[in-house]
Amino acid sequence: MRKTTMLLSTLVVLPLAMPVVADTQWPTQDVTLVTHSSSGGGGDVMLRNMGRTLEQKFGINTVVDNRVGGSGAVAMSWMANQAPNDGYTILSVTPTQLITPLRAPGIPTYQDLTPIARLLTDPTTLYVHENSQFESIEELLQHARENPRSLSIGIGSAGSLDQLVLQNFARETDIDVRTIPHEGGGDAVVALLGEHVDAVIGEPGQALTHLESGTLRMLAVFQEERLETYPEVPTLQELGYEVISNKFRGVFGPPDMDPELVEEIGHTLRDIVNDEPWKTYWGEGSMTPSYLGHEEFTEFLHVANEELREFVEGLQ
């Protein structure tokens, strides 16, 4: 019975699907992957893994083009003004690409480019040192309420999504803590390893070995679901606090792209989710595949952008 259905469906689907796949399956030529990160930075590492995966799967070449500068503004304006829109030049994006245009006028925004797809969600988590007195997030919250401004919480950098999450966290849980920005997530982890801050809010990926060896202890996850890699750590939602971080990773294209092409690129990037080394990349970083196509991604960006606008205005 099952066999017949499968055979039937294959017979029906095959003629419909085949021509599309054979003719225009993206990518058929070399792809330029643009990022605002310098070598070794977040976007750079993501694109190198993506590029390698595409190379192995499709037999094409990829080039990572680091257009560093202006907190992402350089890469954004290059994409908006100079990049060819044939679908073979795409930009890696994170919330940075929303925050930077909000901080300074005159920089192209997501509305000036073509959002192609959201691919992954980076979990934001809170962790402490193994010597910390806090065994659970409730203990930390109780201490923070009883002793305002006694706790210092490290974040990767100022004006980033992590700071917004920390702000929302403090407001929602009614605590007052000191925010300590660093020069990147790695530096914040070092400060925690040296016990110079009480906790760090950031991605688990930047503290991977220490979380595994037990030198650092994760207390809470700022997303809807628990992490597969850390199933014992509760989400804040479970504890009754509505603090969710949406640190997404996706890709944009230049303006005025062919909508069919946009969809095709999105589908290809969605479908590499279990190919190596892309799978290892997101698995190691405890990221969640969270594909959104062009339209849903654009909607998502509208909402995220409004929240970030309030946050950036609050900084001033």
Partner: peptide, 20 residues
């Protein structure tokens, strides 16, 4: 460049090339 503690542009004269 960018003020490392507020994340806002500082003395950049409106040029995004100076933000870093």
């Amino acid at each position: 460049g960018t003020d490392p503690f507020s994340g806002l542009p500082r003395f950049t004269f409106g040029r995004f090339e100076l933000m870093d």
